[in-house]
């Protein structure tokens, strides 16, 4: 009986939340083709900027999504445009394909090849320093709370990973009993 009541309560709560949360629109649903055409014609921007694939005229999945970025997310835009990402990406900014798998471990190798590519979504270098340098003694950010008890196992599996953020003195101070609450 308790289980049935709990299940009913959860179902009602989920129903209320689904009514309260409005479904975010796809960026293409928000696109005003007629309005944009008037700008493109006056600036002689060709249709192929977005419709490089001839099939894209009938199938919007084949439209070049990055065509929008040529004005809305470009340091040298073809035409002046609103750079706010949330203007189109109501549901959140989609991540690039290479972010899907093991990105935190491999991003160092790829991001250093062309840092300006990362800046399209992460313009501030504080984004990098937030993980690599910023000290936070309150929240569970780079490491879980339990990591303190078993980090010796991981350090011996991959000591290079520790070096990407820490100096040896960080380890030595803690192990020598020089713990401070500001570490």
């Amino acid at each position: 009986m308790v289980l049935i009541r709990s299940g009913l309560l959860i179902t009602i709560l989920l129903g209320c939340m689904s009514m309260a949360a409005a479904k975010a629109k796809h960026p293409y649903d928000k696109y005003d083709h007629e309005m944009h055409n008037s700008f493109f014609e006056s600036a002689e921007v060709s249709c192929e900027m977005c419709h490089a694939d001839p099939d894209s005229y009938g199938n919007r999945k084949k439209v070049n999504r990055l065509g929008c970025h040529r004005c809305h997310n470009d340091p040298a835009p073809i035409l002046p445009a609103n750079p706010d990402c949330m203007l189109c990406h109501e549901a959140g900014i989609p991540k690039p394909q290479n972010h899907k798998t093991r990105w935190i471990a491999k991003h160092g190798s790829i991001s250093k090849q062309a840092p300006e590519t990362c800046k399209q979504c992460h313009p501030s270098t504080m984004f990098c320093m937030d993980c690599h340098k910023r000290r936070d003694t309150v929240q569970e950010r780079m490491h879980t709370r339990n990591f303190r008890f078993y980090h010796s196992v991981e350090a011996r599996a991959n000591p290079r990973k520790c070096d990407s953020c820490h100096r040896v003195s960080f380890c030595q101070d803690c192990h020598a009993g020089k713990e401070t609450s500001g570490r």
Binding site: N146, Y150, V153, E154, A155, R156, A157
Partner: peptide
């Protein structure tokens, strides 16, 4: 995790 330092399950 497993290394010459031990192992961890979580």
């Amino acid at each position: 995790l497993q290394s010459w330092g031990g192992n961890v399950h979580g």
